[in-house]
């Protein structure tokens, strides 16, 4: 078997194949549900109901989607420049740490703390990615390795802080930080509904990233560097500087996930703040084909599967792990679909 490049894929091909990927994912999920002894149709019905069947379910899905939009954007921005940032998890925790430090150590009114914490998170996340990027541009160190390993360093650092200087004296011995003041919490998006302004900030960020990519000089530079760094360098685009700017943007976006989770939802910093939002952000970005507006859609889709699977497993006897499998399957099929929009398989 060989692959033959398709110069200009038809619209039917570029839309039909991803749709087919989703269908294939559903079929795999149905098979797994049958293996677990449940009725596949009922299982999917319960997942959809759990994700969007009620106002509460829908808001829960959007709440869960919020950090995924941020990490998805972070990955999409970086991957667009062929900067393989696998460290959104570390940048998220850096953002959460900055949020908690500013929120608990500065005695300021909430109206001042809210923007300050966000700014602090942005800077902290950007700085966390700056190191690996400088190592890459100066010494040629592979950023996949450094950003990945930074995730563990950051988690251990947080663990150290939560067991030590940041430990909440009122926390009954649990490793968690003091909470940030009540008035420094992100307000509800709509009064009475359990959805905070972090979601609004995520939507604004997605639009902002889209504007940056399509309308600004930096966006042009980022795309040029990502598509062909050799041609970009020849044309006089400062590749190293562009990568540094990309890193600050990407790391900052991932850190906003930590900011939004702490200031909007949890109120304090714990070691289980993120169930892998940084890694899931990679899936979100890939499913969205790195399009910032698509990230919003795919983040809600991914969050819906997780939330829906939670609800489903309470009602049917199918474990929630089906959500992870569905997600992994969706990603694999989607990657295959993308490949097949660009290449045709030939025998022989």
């Amino acid at each position: 078997m060989r692959l033959e490049a398709i110069a200009d894929p038809t619209l039917a091909r570029s839309l039909g194949l991803p749709a087919l990927a989703l269908v294939a994912t559903v079929l795999v999920g149905a098979f797994l549900a049958m293996l677990a002894g449940a009725d596949p149709l009922q299982t999917f019905g319960l997942i959809v109901k759990g994700a969007a069947g009620s106002k509460f379910a829908l808001l829960e899905t959007l709440n869960r989607a919020t950090p995924l939009i941020f990490t998805g954007l972070a990955v999409a921005v970086a991957f667009r420049a062929r900067l393989w940032n696998i460290g959104a998890e570390a940048q998220l925790y850096a953002g959460a740490l900055a949020t908690v430090l500013i929120g608990t150590k500065l005695a300021l009114p909430g109206a001042a703390l809210i923007p300050l914490m966000g700014l602090g998170a942005l800077v902290a996340g950007g700085l966390v990615l700056l190191g690996p990027v400088l190592l890459k541009t100066r010494l040629g160190v592979d950023e996949v390795v450094t950003t990945l390993l930074f995730n563990f360093i950051m988690l251990l650092l947080i663990s150290l802080l939560l067991e030590g200087p940041l430990k909440d004296p009122m926390g009954m011995g649990w490793p968690k930080s003091e909470p940030i003041p009540r008035d420094a919490r992100l307000p509800r998006l709509v009064e009475g509904l359990r959805l905070h302004w972090g979601f609004g900030l995520a939507l604004v960020s997605a639009v902002a990233v889209w504007v940056i990519q399509t309308r600004t000089t930096l966006g042009y530079e980022i795309r040029a560097v990502g598509l062909n760094a050799q041609a970009a360098r020849f044309a006089g685009i400062p590749v190293g500087a562009v990568l540094v700017k990309t890193a600050l943007l990407s790391g900052g976006l991932a850190a906003l996930a930590g900011y939004s989770e702490v200031a909007g939802l949890k109120g304090n910093l714990t070691l289980d703040l993120s169930p892998g939002f940084g890694y899931t952000g990679i899936v979100v970005a890939m499913l969205a084909l790195l399009n910032p507006l698509g990230v919003v859609v795919s983040a809600i889709f991914v969050a819906g599967i997780f939330v829906g699977a939670d609800g489903m497993s309470r009602a049917a006897e199918v474990p929630t792990y089906i959500a992870d499998i569905l997600l992994a399957t969706a990603l694999l099929f989607m990657v295959l679909a993308i490949l097949l929009t660009k290449f045709r398989v030939r025998r022989g």
Binding site: A224, L227, Q230, F234, I237
Partner: peptide
């Protein structure tokens, strides 16, 4: 192909490669 142009950029985007700034 590899140095003079960016294959997946449009003609417009390639035309301004050296003067985009």
């Amino acid at each position: 192909h590899r140095t003079g142009t960016i294959a997946d950029f449009s003609l417009t985007e390639n035309a301004i490669l050296e003067t985009y700034a």
